[in-house]
C-alpha cells in the first residue's frame, strides 16, 4: 500500500516474518491490518477530513474527525470536574 500509516510485523518461531500495512481510521482511531496487496480493504477515504476510514465508520455518512470526539471527551470531563462530580 502506498503511504501506509503503520506496519504490523509478525515473527513466527521458525524465523518467518510476515509484514502487513495498517491504516488508522480518521473517525474512530481504530487500527486496521491490511491484507497484502489489498488496496480496497479499507472502508473508504473521507474527502472532508482527508483521512482513511475503517469499514465500520465508512457506513456513516457524517464526517466526525477523531479530534472532534477527543475534544468532546475532554470537555465533558472538565465540566464534571468543574461541577465537583
Amino acid at each position: 500500500m502506498r503511504n501506509a500509516q503503520g506496519n504490523m510485523l509478525v515473527m513466527d518461531p521458525n524465523g518467518t516474518k510476515t509484514e502487513h500495512d495498517t491504516i488508522t481510521c480518521g473517525h474512530c482511531n481504530g487500527v486496521h491490518v491490511m491484507a497484502p496487496k489489498d488496496a480496497y480493504g479499507v472502508g473508504r477515504y473521507c474527502t472532508l477530513c482527508a483521512r482513511h476510514l475503517c469499514p465500520g465508520c465508512a457506513q456513516i455518512e457524517k464526517c466526525t474527525p477523531f479530534e472532534k470526539r477527543l475534544e468532546a471527551i475532554e470537555r465533558s470531563t472538565q465540566l464534571m470536574q468543574a461541577m465537583g462530580i
Binding site: Q5, M8, M11, T24, N29, V33, L70, E74
Partner: peptide, 29 residues
C-alpha cells in the same frame, strides 16, 4: 471501542508501529 484486533499463535510475537500522527490516542482525561 476496539482499536486493534489480530489473531496469532502463542509461539509468534508481533510488533505494530504507527507512522507519525497515526498512533492510538489517549485523551487528556
Amino acid at each position: 471501542a476496539f482499536l486493534l484486533n489480530w489473531a496469532m499463535n502463542q509461539r509468534c510475537s508481533a510488533r505494530w508501529q504507527a507512522a507519525p500522527g497515526f498512533g492510538m490516542i489517549v485523551p487528556a482525561t
